[in-house]
C-alpha cells in the first residue's frame, strides 16, 4: 500500500467580493456576493514511502490546497485521501504527530527565544520522549551544523540559518513524511546547497518521504526523481523529470548573440521564440523537425550572428511552456 493515496480530490472555495463605495461596505456587513473558485478539480495520485516528489504549478493552481488537505488542516468537498492508513482531517492530532511541515516564508520558531528553547518547547508540544528527542536533536545538529546557533535568539538569525533551524524543528519528532513549501526561497547560494544536501540525505538515509513545492527549478533538478505539475486544480503531468522533457520531444534551446541589438526578427518556421534581451535571442526547436545545422545555416544567412550556442531546453522553459499550453487550452 502506498503511503499516500489521493483519489479524485475536489475542493471549491467561496471567495467573497467587495462592493465598491461606502454603501457597498455597509452592505458587505450583512450580505456578500460570493464567487466559487475550484481549487482542486479531481486530483489523484499515489506516493510511496521514501519518495522525493516535487509538486509544482503556477500560483493559485491548487498546490497549497493539496498540501493542506494532505496535512489534515483542510477538509475537501469530495474525493478520498488516505495517509499512512488515516484520513488526515478525521484524525488531525494523530496525523500531524507523524508529519513535519516547513514553510519557507515563515518560521515556526519562537522569535524572541534562543533556538534551543524552541526545540525544547516542540519536544513538549509533540510529547517526544526526552531520550528520543535528544538522539534526534544530536543527529540534526550534526547534519545541519546547528551547534553555533543553538543559543542565539531566533530574531538574530540570518534567513539561511533560520531555515536550517526550521528544518530541524520540523523533524525533531521523527516524522515519516515531510512537506516543504519553498524551502530555498530567498536563500543565498551556499545556504541553498546546504538545504538541498540535507534534504537529499534525509530522504536517502532515513527514508523520509518528502513532498516539495517550489518555484526554483534548480531544487527539482538537484533533488527530485518525480515531478507532479498541477494547474487550475488538475494534475497536468506526473512522472520523472525526463518524462516531463520528452513531452516536448526533447526540444533544444538555441541562443543567438546578434551584432545588431535592434535587428527586427522574422518568425522562423519550426521554432518558437522563447525570449529576447537586446542582442540576445533564444529560440526553442525540435531536432527531429529541423536539424541544428540547418537552422544555424538559415539564421546565419538572415542575421549577422556574433555568437551562438545550443543546449537542452532548461526545465524552467519546459514548465513555462506547460503552463502556457494549459492557459491556452
Amino acid at each position: 500500500m502506498a503511503q499516500i493515496e489521493v483519489e479524485q480530490l475536489v475542493k471549491t472555495y467561496a471567495v467573497s467580493e467587495r462592493r465598491p463605495g461606502l454603501w457597498g461596505a455597509v452592505q458587505g456587513l450583512v450580505r456578500r456576493r460570493q464567487r466559487r473558485v475550484k481549487a482542486l478539480d479531481g486530483v489523484s495520485f499515489e506516493i510511496g514511502r521514501g519518495e522525493l516528489v516535487a509538486y509544482i504549478g503556477p500560483n493559485g493552481a491548487g498546490k497549497s490546497t493539496t498540501v493542506k488537505v494532505l496535512s489534515g488542516i483542510l477538509v475537501p468537498d469530495g474525493g478520498r485521501c488516505v495517509v499512512e492508513g488515516r484520513v488526515p482531517w478525521e484524525e488531525r492530532i494523530a496525523h500531524v504527530a507523524q508529519i513535519g511541515v516547513v514553510f519557507g516564508q515563515r518560521t515556526q520558531l519562537w522569535w524572541d527565544l534562543p533556538v534551543v528553547d524552541s526545540f525544547e518547547l516542540l519536544r513538549d508540544i509533540y510529547r517526544v520522549e526526552p531520550p528520543r528527542w535528544r538522539r534526534n536533536l544530536d543527529e540534526l545538529v550534526a547534519l545541519l551544523d546547528l551547534e553555533p546557533l543553538l543559543d542565539v535568539p531566533v530574531r538574530q538569525l540570518s534567513l539561511g540559518q533560520r531555515m536550517r533551524c526550521d528544518l530541524a524543528a520540523a523533524l525533531l519528532h521523527g516524522p515519516s513524511l515531510l512537506f516543504l513549501d519553498e524551502p530555498t526561497i530567498g536563500l543565498d547560494a551556499v545556504s541553498k546547497l546546504a538545504v538541498r544536501a540535507f534534504i537529499q540525505r534525509l530522504n536517502r538515509e532515513r527514508q523520509v518521504t518528502v513532498i516539495l513545492t517550489t518555484h526554483d527549478m534548480d531544487d527539482i533538478e538537484a533533488l527530485c526523481d518525480r515531478v507532479m505539475v498541477i494547474a487550475r486544480g488538475q494534475i497536468l503531468c506526473d512522472g520523472s523529470l525526463e518524462a516531463l522533457r520528452t513531452r516536448f520531444g526533447h526540444q533544444r534551446r538555441l541562443t543567438l548573440e546578434l551584432a545588431d541589438p535592434h535587428a527586427p526578427l522574422v518568425p522562423e518556421p519550426g521554432t518558437a521564440l522563447l525570449g529576447r534581451e537586446g542582442a540576445r535571442v533564444s529560440l526553442a526547436f525540435d531536432p527531429a523537425e529541423v536539424t541544428a545545422a540547418e537552422l544555424i545555416g538559415r539564421l546565419g544567412a538572415r542575421y549577422a550572428v556574433r555568437d551562438l550556442w545550443v543546449e537542452e531546453l532548461p526545465i524552467e522553459e519546459v514548465v513555462a511552456r506547460l503552463y502556457d499550453e494549459e492557459a491556452a487550452a
Binding site: R92, I125, Y126
Partner: peptide
C-alpha cells in the same frame, strides 16, 4: 495553520 499542524488542541 501552524497551530493546526501541531498535535495539540
Amino acid at each position: 495553520d501552524r497551530l493546526l499542524l501541531r498535535p495539540r488542541s
